[in-house]
Amino acid sequence: MIEVRGLVKAFGVKPVLRGLDFQVAEGEFVAVVGPNGAGKTTLLRILTSMARPTMGEVRIAGLQLPRQSGAARKILGVVSHQPLLYGDLTADQNLRFFGRMYGVSNLDDRISEVLSIVRMSARRYDLVRDYSRGMQQRLAIGRGILHRPELLLFDEPHTGLDPDAADMLDDLLIRVADEGRTVVMTSHDLTRAGELASRVDILSGGKIARSIKRGELDRGELNQLYYEVTRG
């Protein structure tokens, strides 16, 4: 689904990613973890074609970025740590707008369906501005899956959520992933990442330093490895 080879991204003179290789097979749920500033968000922004790579090859479902980004964006669903929603519109209007941008068919039905998945049906006609952070994030996930994307990218989805809201989000993430979609999530929360993902990749020094499949290590070992890789 995702194939990244030798990816380099520099902001000005400062390299963030230095020859990164990264593969994700179809149906996998991969969590990319790493300390702040390691380049997790940068990696995701390149995968979403919001940033262009300085060097290296990036393919999504066989489509080369940034050249074929238009086609790639169709199969991508993105949930960022910002909600990407309009505060002065209701949930219904927000989803309707993005549905039209993506050309979703049977939009009314799909909006109802998505709202019930993210458990926001009761707030359908309320302004997004008045939502709590957790509700905004749930609606943002609704926006991300609205057009039935094959590949979902979550950028620090737990940012700014209280523990209850974060647990609810986890349920949602698992449900979304179980529908057979490929998911890539960045996080700085190692524990959550380890519980959710089928594979945890540790990003350090601008590269994927380690890649751990679920069940390979227990939580303590994973934590220790993480600190060894990122601190050492």
Partner: peptide, 14 residues
């Protein structure tokens, strides 16, 4: 404000 421009740019439109 809420990163909406990113949301627009993510859509598969020119």
């Amino acid at each position: 404000d809420r990163g909406c421009l990113d949301g627009l740019l993510l859509a598969p439109v020119d």
